[in-house]
């Protein structure tokens, strides 16, 4: 086992452990803190996979932005009362179904990788342009231009949605 593999398993294992802590903690703030640690370990995994830009985005956007959004949501609700409520009320069937779908998705990706080895084609293509950030730029703004522009519409929808949801409170 090489050092790269060793560090991959260490960081992947630690991120799984922290993710498990996120869903098992009763205190929502503790969950959010564990989520930050999970994102940091995932960033380490991205670095090992030579996706430096993704690692930076993981820390800046996810550990910085998304978790602070979650913390504000925790502060919006009555977290004290929520921690007393029994959490699993007939959600097990739905949760199992979603988990099964996710497992199938991940499984199919792993299967495709071992069966046909199509994975990494885009990465090889991107490496022609130089570094990691340049590679993403070269693909995102030429081949995957439409998804990129759709992303802006998605962001716009989220923006308008948040304002509409909070509108009554804002006007008061």
């Amino acid at each position: 086992m090489s050092w790269t593999q060793f560090f991959f398993y260490v960081f992947a294992g630690l991120s799984l452990l922290c993710a498990l802590m996120v869903v098992t903690r009763r205190n929502a703030v503790h969950s959010a803190i564990f989520l930050i640690i999970t994102f940091f370990f995932m960033a380490a995994v991205f670095v090992i996979l030579k996706a430096e830009l993704l690692a930076a985005v993981q820390v800046l956007v996810y550990a910085g932005g998304v978790v602070s959004l979650m913390l504000y949501v925790i502060m919006l609700v009555k977290a004290e009362e929520a921690s007393q409520v029994k959490q699993n009320l007939g959600q097990i069937a739905i949760a199992a179904f979603i988990a099964l779908l996710l497992a199938l998705q991940v499984g199919s990706i792993v299967y495709l990788y071992f069966a046909q080895k199509p994975a990494g084609k885009a990465a090889v293509e991107a490496l022609k342009y130089g570094g990691n950030t340049e590679g993403i730029g070269a693909l995102l703004y030429t081949k995957y231009l439409f998804p990129f522009e759709v992303a802006s519409v998605l962001l716009l929808a989220a923006m308008v949605g948040a304002i509409v949801l909070a509108k009554n409170r804002l006007e008061r």
Binding site: G65, S68, L69, Y72, V73, M75, L76, V77, K78, A162, I163, A166, R169, L170
Partner: peptide, 10 residues
């Protein structure tokens, strides 16, 4: 509980 304004800003 903090005001909803914080949520919109964040």
């Amino acid at each position: 509980r903090v005001p909803i304004r914080f949520f919109v800003i964040i």
